[in-house]
Design a protein around this nucleic acid. Structure first.
Lengths: 342, 342
DNA sequence: TTGTAGGCGTTATCAA
DNA sequence: TTGATAACGCCTACAA
């Protein structure tokens, strides 16, 4: 029943000092000159009373919220794909270490009122991380141009953006080489999202370029589009293999899609990898334990989140950032879902 | 470059009224008697200036933060298991509709300083949702007893707790009946977490009870323990099948674990479902597309999250709650991972 | 080394 | 129907 809330005033009275002194002792640790004895007295009073500064008062006076916003551009993906939770985890870890809070804001698709002003204009947050930003998101562009601290996990190709992204080149070219070495010539792809979704498009064109290196092409007919879920991957693959029955290998847009691809293959009586080789993306924690174990391009999503958080923290501190756009590498992990072309 | 921030004072001046009037117009919509004309004038001024009330000021004056805390008891699970993201999604949806914000707080295992006081005592949040609470979490018990609005997703069996949980009975007895009807007599289990983790233990004992109904027992030797990941499920299953090679069916503690179970079966040369039947829990979105499609107990995690959020919102509004402890049902989804006992 | 005074932007209480 | 005025709890010059 310690229901009466304790304010800095109470602490001050108990310690026999002024409120200002309390604030100094508790916030500016050793910066200012205060007698050890006063410090001790204040600390003890605070501890005895169980004093906890009211955050609203602190925000108002200091102008800092110690909170960052985290926007998931398409909240519906959260329960379906394993990627975002990993990024979340990375962001959470860093913020916890730094004592920052995270305000999580989902967005129901790209429609609906933009959530930025609700957080930024009301000064609820000091900085923002946007997951899977869409390049047609005008309010986001405006926010970036306003110099408000924003870090993207992904990219909208804005010259002033701060972002942490993946360069899929290395992983994709290794994957492509693997398939080509195994004798595959007719290679298709199931993108993890509809055309227009930057990250998905990027993977398709990266694969295309890599194939060209080997003198191979991937015609439009050899690409189909899923919509994040394994189920959508299943249906896309069925369409794809119906249209292009000669394909001997398929790039899945990510590992969740790969589950659907393998399921569709099974449904069509094609064995993986005997009749059809499959390569995933992301290397989710369970991918090594699928049947067959999935050969995939490993991406360290947790680290991506952590780096984004660290970059934002630098921005908040006004420290310089080495590079506005960070690109992480990825690498091929060979497992059991690829074999020689039939 | 609208860098100068707009305060209610500016709006008041522009509309030719006082700050108090601005507040009334903007917050208490029609509650109070104000002339239509004044309303209109204030609204227009606010719109023209792009006025956004400062949240800290509002919190301080009103005492309400319009924010709820969300604690993930073991943050390390987030990137590994598909369950929490679904709950998150459900919570997020409801809060978005209601215009509430969500402060996400992870916790690094049950160690570390408890995060409750950091949120509650500093008045950063109006209410709290705790995911996967542990029953040995003393600070949490204290918080519940303090009458602070808390809703658990899961349970710590505290009489005063507000919680949303699952009654796995229906699903488990259906699953058990299925196995028994298929001729299985030696049935084992791989729990999704170590003993002591309430939710995992509950599933083990529920399975045990259901088997007893059919005159079967599941000795301790027929149970092994994983640790959330598919990988840990793989290893646990290997141990289990080594110890109890006669098992013809395995309950997996959840679908992620089931992936590991099936993988271990494959590694040991057992075919699923021909040589070994497997039943999962949760029915994650991808489970229908695994190879073989997983027979599992469906749990609507999104709804669980949504209900928890709605319950908390009622609590915040001071409205009565129908039941402090809500238990959702679950049901068996038959797919392809179970077959007649060999 | 410490205290005083003012301000942060809102909301709430009264008078008018 | 509206406007002063006082909280709300904290921080930070600046003065002592």
């Amino acid at each position: 029943m310690a229901s009466k809330r304790v304010t800095s005033h109470d602490v001050a009275r108990r310690a026999g000092v002024s409120r200002a002194t309390v604030s100094l002792v508790l916030n500016r640790s050793d910066a200012v000159a205060l007698s050890q004895e006063t410090r001790e007295r204040v600390r003890r009073a605070a501890a005895e009373l169980g004093y906890r500064p009211n955050s609203a008062g602190r925000m108002l006076a200091s102008g800092s919220t110690e909170t960052i916003g985290l926007i998931i551009s398409d909240a519906a993906i959260l329960p379906i794909d394993g990627f975002i939770p990993q990024v979340l985890h990375g962001i959470g870890q860093v913020n916890r270490e730094r004592g920052l809070h995270v305000l999580l804001e989902g967005r129901d698709s790209s429609s609906g009122p933009n959530p930025y002003e609700a957080l930024v204009d009301t000064r609820r947050i000091d900085g923002l991380i946007v997951l899977n930003p869409r390049s047609d998101d005008e309010p986001l562009r405006a926010l970036i141009e306003s110099e408000f601290p924003v870090v993207l996990v992904g990219s909208i190709r804005h010259p002033k953006e701060h972002s942490v992204n993946f360069s899929s080149r290395a992983g994709i070219s290794a994957a492509t080489r693997l398939l080509v070495d195994l004798g595959h010539r007719r290679i298709g792809m199931v993108a993890f999202a509809a055309p227009g979704f930057v990250a998905a498009d990027a993977r398709v064109s990266a694969v295309r370029r890599a194939l060209q290196t080997h003198g191979l092409t991937m015609p439009d007919d050899a690409v189909d589009y899923a919509d994040f879920s394994a189920e959508s991957g299943y249906h896309a693959t069925k369409r794809l293999l119906q249209r292009q029955p000669d394909l001997t290998a398929i790039f899945a847009g990510n590992d969740t899609i790969a589950i659907g691809v393998m399921s569709a293959a099974a449904a069509l009586g094609r064995r993986v990898p005997g009749d059809l080789s499959v390569i995933g993306f992301d290397d989710l924690p369970f991918s090594a334990w699928l049947n067959p174990a999935l050969t995939t391009v490993h991406i360290d999503a947790v680290q991506q989140g952590a780096l984004a958080a660290e970059m934002l923290i630098r921005l908040l501190a006004g420290k310089p950032v080495d590079a506005r756009q960070v690109r992480l590498d990825c690498e091929l992990v060979e497992r059991k879902s690829c074999a020689g072309a039939p």
